[in-house]
Design a protein around this nucleic acid. Structure first.
Lengths: 373, 373
DNA sequence: TTTTAGCACTCATAGTAATAGAGTGCTAAT
DNA sequence: ATTAGCACTCTATTACTATGAGTGCTAAAA
């Protein structure tokens, strides 16, 4: 009897979730709750329990209600359980939602902090490489995480030469060389068979039009041809040109590795080792940086827990931003920390420092960030 | 009864130690034993017990004898006990003795390893700063410790101006400025009172003779004057000139921080943290590097467990060597690892790489380690 | 329909105790 | 001088037992 009633209730609740609010099951109350859980957890690193949260935040609902809501949030994947009788902790999805919808966007850095950062930059006349290291150090100290800065990449992406070589009947190899000497090869599979002569003609035509043009210009022209050229070929070409810009090895400076070990979630030997290894020699960062470099529109980027792409980053989040001037000299500055970081603060910090570095590079200030060669 | 006999025996032994072999209590057998203990411990990180060592190394003596010898070595401070019923482990003094008297001096690096290292250097055309980082990385990978390299310091130590200013009756301030702009002040207390006029005369005379001379030349001249000048003043002057060369901040590159965490002796959270902190931001390395730079004669230097000077280095040893050409451009390359390291190998590695870097800097090879500015 | 009190259940954590065994130091014999 | 023998010390391991925090579910209240 009771059993039945319960089951019905359960189904009711579920059906409601699935049917009445299929895409937006996040009630205002749940959002608020999730935000509170994350704030709590970020500050205290303790699974957040229903009763505690009610008392501490004087919530106008009972622990039982909170438990129900929590159960719902868990079903949706925003929070989890370490074990049955423990409070809730945010999942990566929870953090993601927080960063995108819940977080107070501004006010990460106080004015004194901003001045402090500025001081660290302006104090010294710097040669470029030292400036980079300094920046990483500033990020590290300000955020108490690992500071990461890529050396600025002076890119001359104007096309020098493009060659299309037939490999098989419907397979061509495209080789592109840019003014700064980067080389990129890419295979292209074609819809229809094509002879080397035809390819040469295409090649010549492309060269004639695209020579000495930069990626943006080329992309525009290629778009215009899209129909004529065959859509796939066009996108692959653009892809290749883009990847050219990430081709160069970017040097990566890391500072404050020790900071991250102070986080209690790494209070365990193998985790510590794994984390250090990942940050120092892992592939995640070297993969992410070029992606950021390519991302021309966006501001600060956040990758939470490796976002399913990097296994060894499961416990780490990365906050990155570009600095420098698009098309001339750009680099990436950011930080690596625990997924349980103060995203608000991290983002503000990175944003601020990126802006500062950009100013320094463009000479907005009196400081010559890049000293005499 | 027994008690008395025992006591007498104890006194006998002690008196023997103190009287018969006051300075050289190290018998050949004890040396051999210490060497074995260290080798064992370095390899297995297990306190070395008497019985095990006898069995494993087929020693022609009994465990009891080994225990007696061990007790003696412990009394002398070369080894210790973690606790009563544990085997012996080397002390810092033990390692020191090992490094200085017991270690097989050569043969740390196999030929393939040497070639491997060379490869890593010669493969790439490098800009200076990248070369430095690379070197640190090579050390780190080869030694599985933390690689450390200071940026080479281009030093123009020729004296530009020397000023002697009277402060009190018998106290003078000496200010030296070198061609590269370094400034050094030093107080000098004088045997006899002296007036500012006299000081000015001395000052002028010194300038006339020492202007545009480098430290070595100056040192020689100052030596010649030693009697005339008053010995203390002379040595202080030389000291000051020396310290000028360490005045500049040297940039320090560290690579392979994660390596060191793989050592089992750091299998403990707070130790790990402390070690990382020490290496990343501690003062020990920045203090040691300039000292090495000044040390004109010596080859590889080993600092074991901070050698009582650096508290936070108690668990760490440093192996450093200079690279570059004296008086022109010099830097330091080396590694940081557990006190329980393979000193033999570490020393050989550092030595080899330092030599290689020197060759690259002096252009002995085709590689331009310093690329176009 | 939503909220809440009540309660059984789960599980991590801390503390206690007992045991095994590795290795020493000392004594007495060789 | 060396060694066998042995008492003694101390660590590490295991097993066991609370303890209590926090949940999920049920049934009652709003």
């Amino acid at each position: 009897m009771k059993r039945q009633e319960r089951k019905t209730g359960g189904i009711d609740r579920e059906s409601k979730v699935n049917m009445e609010e299929p895409q937006e099951s996040m009630t205002e109350r749940r959002k608020e709750l999730l935000r509170t859980i994350i704030n709590e957890y970020v500050n205290n690193y303790l699974p957040v329990s229903s009763e505690m949260i009610v008392n501490k935040y004087k919530l106008p609902i009972s622990p039982a209600t909170v438990r129900n809501e929590m159960a719902e949030l868990e079903r949706e994947g925003y929070i989890t359980h370490p074990h049955t009788s423990a409070g809730r902790i945010p999942s990566d999805k929870g953090y993601r939602y927080y960063v995108e919808h819940l977080m107070e966007r501004q006010g990460g850095l106080s004015l004194p902090e901003q001045h402090n950062i500025q001081h660290q930059f302006y104090q010294v006349q710097l040669e470029l490489n030292e400036g980079i290291r300094l920046a990483a150090g500033v990020v590290a100290r300000t955020s108490q995480n690992v500071g990461v800065v890529s050396s600025p990449y002076v890119f001359d992406g104007r096309l020098k030469r493009l060659e299309v070589i037939g490999v098989q009947e419907r397979l061509a190899l495209v080789v592109a060389v840019t003014q700064d000497g980067s080389i990129k090869e890419q295979m292209l599979s074609l819809k229809e068979p094509i002879t080397q002569e035809e390819l040469s003609i295409i090649s010549n035509r492309l060269n004639a039009t695209l020579h000495n043009q930069n990626r943006t210009q080329i992309e525009k022209k290629v778009q215009d041809w899209a129909e004529e050229l065959d859509k796939i070929v066009a996108t692959r070409l653009v892809e290749m040109l883009r990847s050219l810009e990430q081709y160069r090895d970017v040097q990566l400076y890391r500072e404050g590795l020790a900071n991250i070990l102070n986080q209690p979630e790494f209070n365990n030997i193998s985790t510590m080792r794994q984390v250090m290894q990942t940050i120092e020699t892992g592939t995640a960062l070297p993969t992410l940086i070029p992606e950021i470099l390519q991302n021309y529109e966006s501001g600060v980027q956040v990758v939470i827990g490796g976002e399913n792409r990097f296994d060894d980053m499961r416990l780490l989040s990365v906050v990155l931003a570009r600095y420098g001037i698009d098309g001339q000299v750009i680099g990436v500055v950011g930080l690596v920390g625990s997924t349980r970081m103060e995203y608000n603060r991290s983002i503000s910090t990175v944003q601020y420092i990126a802006q500062l570095m950009t100013n320094l590079l463009t000479g907005h200030s009196g400081n010559n960030f890049i000293g005499p060669t």
